[in-house]
């Protein structure tokens, strides 16, 4: 009698608890591996390490130092430069490739798709090592095969050419990957729209502007936002390609500077500050982009 009632109440209880148990693994993992580190890094940004076993409260002075730190600004500019390069160079190339590989007259599409996609399968470190050889001023492939602008360019040895070299490497590695998204978007556009436009006498360019681009808007928004976030988190490629940002921080990025401060200089508080500032920058840029691209618009 007694045990029966206990069992009954257990049954009752578990009906209520079960749903929470089912979703618990995600939340436990999220709290342990995301929530806790996020909060403690925010706390850390108001402290600075004092050796290995103690830290000292410094208020907002990490943030003040950061805004006065020329290397931070240089890294922020380099990162923005890369992000703009991605936006202006890489994504249009990806779209162009997608349109070409979606058109009827290109042969061997599957092979070409694989070929353009393949670079993303190569780890960033190896890409950087390969492009180090390609960009070398005197022995590199680019300067030896194409003398551009009438002289050898110091891709990795002259400050102003370092980020362009990183951007070009980024194009090689990521354009094919973004092409896949665009390709999927293009294949989702109904063929009837083009046929109707053709009947109305629209030329190729008009169809592209009035059918292809508007139909691709959600895909473009996704690719732009994800690429911007990825661009602002740039680290391994320039770290290897420029040997940690050389020469004179010309190849330094925000995450690289964060890494250096955290792991090489043992300034965990300052590194946490850089991380949070980066988070705020990415959040603002993403929200602005989503607004501009009309993702929040109700249709």
């Amino acid at each position: 009698m007694n045990s029966k009632r206990n069992r009954f109440s257990f049954w009752n209880q578990q009906q209520k608890i079960a749903p929470y148990l089912f979703i618990a693994p995600f939340y436990i993992l999220f709290i342990v591996f995301m929530g806790y580190p996020l909060i403690s890094s925010l706390v850390m940004s108001f402290y600075e390490m004092r050796g290995f076993q103690s830290r000292i409260f410094v208020g907002i002075s990490n943030f003040i130092d950061l805004f006065r730190d020329p290397i931070f600004w240089k890294s922020l500019w380099n990162t923005t430069y890369f992000a703009l390069g991605t936006l202006i160079l890489q994504l249009p190339i990806a779209l162009l490739l997608a349109i070409l590989l979606n058109s009827k007259f290109v042969k061997g599409k599957n092979f070409l798709r694989l070929a353009f996609f393949a670079p993303v399968l190569v780890a960033g470190v190896f890409v950087a090592i390969i492009f180090n050889l390609i960009f070398d001023q005197r022995a590199g492939l680019i300067n030896n095969e194409f003398i551009l602008f009438g002289k050898e360019i110091g891709w990795l040895s002259e400050g102003k050419y370092v980020m362009p070299a990183v951007i070009l490497t980024g194009v090689w590695q990521w354009a094919g990957f973004n092409m896949i998204y665009f390709l999927a978007g293009l294949q989702g556009i109904r063929q009837e729209l083009y046929e109707a436009a053709a009947v109305d006498g629209a030329n190729w360019w008009q169809s592209f502007v009035h059918i292809t681009l508007p139909s691709l808007r959600p895909v473009i928004a996704f690719v732009v936002v994800v690429s911007m976030i990825g661009s602002f988190q740039l680290f391994d490629l320039p770290y290897i390609l420029t040997n940690g940002g050389e020469p004179a921080d010309a190849g330094s990025t925000i995450v690289m500077y964060l890494y250096k401060n955290g792991f090489q200089f043992m300034r965990l508080g300052y590194a946490a500050t850089i991380g949070w500032v980066l988070f705020i920058i990415i959040a603002i840029i993403s929200i602005v982009q989503l607004k501009l691209l009309g993702i929040f618009r109700e249709e």
Partner: peptide, 16 residues
């Protein structure tokens, strides 16, 4: 001459 590549151990340096 400045080092070829990023440091003395780069292959481009050995080539030079």
């Amino acid at each position: 001459t400045p080092v070829y590549g990023t440091w003395h151990g780069d292959p481009s340096n050995f080539a030079a």
